[in-house]
Amino acid sequence: GADEETALAAMAAAAHPGEGGEPDPAALAVLAETAEYLGAGFADLINLFQPERILVGGWAGLLLGTRFLAAVEEHARAYALAYPAARVTLGMSALGPDAVTVGAAILPLADFFDRGGRREEPGPVEEAPAWAENVRERTAR
Rank of each mutant, 00 (worst) to 15 (best):
N47C: 11
A132K: 12
L107G: 05
D111M: 06
S93Q: 09
L31I: 06
E33I: 03
A128R: 13
E4Q: 14
D44L: 12
L90S: 06
D111N: 05
F112G: 00
R138C: 04
G91R: 06
F113Q: 10
P17W: 14
G21Y: 09
T89S: 14
P129E: 09
G1W: 01
A29M: 04
L64I: 10
G21K: 09
A13H: 06
F68G: 10
I46A: 04
G117I: 02
L107D: 10
A60I: 06
A76Y: 05
G21I: 04
T6Y: 03
L90D: 04
G96W: 00
V100R: 08
I46W: 00
A71W: 06
F49P: 01
A13L: 09
N47H: 03
A105K: 05
M92F: 02
W59D: 08
E4H: 13
V88K: 03
V102E: 03
V56I: 15
G103K: 01
P25A: 14
A140M: 12
S93I: 04
A140C: 09
L64C: 09
L69W: 03
G57C: 11
A110T: 07
A14Y: 07
A71E: 15
F112A: 14
E73L: 00
G103A: 09
D111W: 02
A35S: 14
L31P: 08
D44P: 03
E121D: 11
R115T: 02
A9M: 02
G117E: 07
